[in-house]
Amino acid sequence: MADRIPAEPLLRLEGVHTHIGQYHILQGVEFDVPEGGITMLLGRNGAGKTTALRTIMGLWQPSRGSVTFEGRAIGGLTTPEIALSGIAYVPETMAVFSDLTVEENMILAARSGPLDRKRLDWIFSFFPAMQKFWHSPAGVLSGGQKQMLAISRAIIEPRRLILIDEPTKGLAPAIIEGMIGAFEALKRETTILLVEQNFRFAASLGDTVAVMDDGRIVHRGTMTALSADEALQTRLLGLSLDAHQ
């Protein structure tokens, strides 16, 4: 795996601190997302994973430290600027526009022009429900379908990096299996940074891994190494992950 990591990572966080109000959430986060493949960001509830993604996306401003994307500092940029530099975001809440149809959601996500038919067919091949409910308002979709829409929105145009926050949360196992297929195909064309609680899901997809606890990165390495080392898993992730399996 190590040979796939180029000298310059796609995304690099160095000493990132983020405050939300009076709370000091990120306390010096350091990790790299290498180009290509899936990087898993694991950790207990409240470890700061969502805050890390939101900080990368510019939805929280880091109070210290630097975020570098493709060699360019994006730490102080606004969210739209960061999005335009090639990062897509699938938040934990999915944030589909429930008043808009699936089609309208996708139209907005495809900001450089009309929807690309071929690309759309490619997406429908993972998420057939999107085609079926094309003209339905996103608000009536089931939780799993909303998640698919949120992911489809992020990939309707090629992006350099996709941030996905807990896509499996609250979903039925059958839907999760379907999602794994989509991510397998997706990681061949782009880079994904995925926040996860479900260790089995993470282990089946991840290439590199970073583990957070209390606002810091406590472990970095390859997914294979972490999967193999159960003692390390228990130490880093504790019981909370077992409970999620």
């Binding site: 339905s136 308002p137 009536v140 698919m148 839907i175 379907g178």
Partner: peptide, 14 residues
Amino acid sequence: APAAPSAPDAIPKK
């Protein structure tokens, strides 16, 4: 496909 097993058959309208 089973991607959406919980979905009803009818396409929901608002």
